[in-house]
Amino acid sequence: MEWLRSLILPAQGSPYAAQVDTFYMFLVWLSVFFFLLIAGVAVYSVIRFRHKPGDVTPHWTHNNKLEFAWTVIPLAILMVIFVWGVKGYMEAAVPPGDAQEIRVTAKKWVWQFEYPDGTRAINELHVQVNKPVKFVMSSEDVIHDFFVVDMRVKHDILPDRYTEIWFNPTVVGKHHFECAEYCGRGHSDMGGTLYVDDDASYQKWLETGGVDASIPLDKLGSMLYESKGCSSCHTIDGSPSQGPSWKGVFGHPVQLSDGRTVIADENYIRESILVSGAKIVKGYDNIMPVFQGVLRQREVDGLVAYIKTLGNK
């Protein structure tokens, strides 16, 4: 019966999807049976008991046994279906303890995904094959709904609370996700691609952060200046903030709080970013967070290149 399943249901991306499909196909055949039974009796009656002059029809008003049977038998079947449905639902409701967590933020009309290591991606989702993954979701505006078709899971995303879904992707390749709760003009375009990667390509994707390697380093740096929050303490126009401005730093001498003076070269900048407490600039407090382990190699390179371009201004 696989031919029928693959005709009426989408591809299966997880063992759970296969379970749902088995249940679905059971209901399809059950429905076909009952439809044929009901339509059969109706059509048979229309043909066999067509009006003829002089017809006499029996005066059957009721039959308790028959009516009991056709109440209780469907009820019993429905109870089986109820329990089967609850079983599947409960399984989909509780993620395994070791599931990876991805934060999903939905807003009109984009998806934003954030990984535990701080990697962010827009409308593009990468997960590792055979590793259960859990999504913790919230909305910034109206209600949306995260629907991963091939995993047979979906859940609404609300503005005032977190909701969760999880799945265990077992089929490497591209799948589709979409918004299933009406959210206005761009609702039907609010979709994206789910890549289930094998271990190697998943690691590679994490290293590059999903950022296109073709972006020039200084351009990347200027993007990270905003997205990594540097801009909340550093300006690029020379005005002081919680931290020194980046304007005119590179290539020039810097006074440190311990009285030494150093030339701000690549190594100094790199060290200041990763472990800023190593050398404190005179007149400032040691409040800058440690970025060691948070920024990727290429990202550090990008920031250094960006600060370099501000050096001569």
């Binding site: 379970q19 249940f23 279906i81 109820f82 089967w84 449905g85 639902y89 399984e91 989909a92």
Partner: peptide
């Protein structure tokens, strides 16, 4: 009946 059955309704 499909829609009343929980795991199928989710889909």
């Amino acid at each position: 009946v499909f829609l009343g059955a929980l795991s199928i309704d989710v889909h």
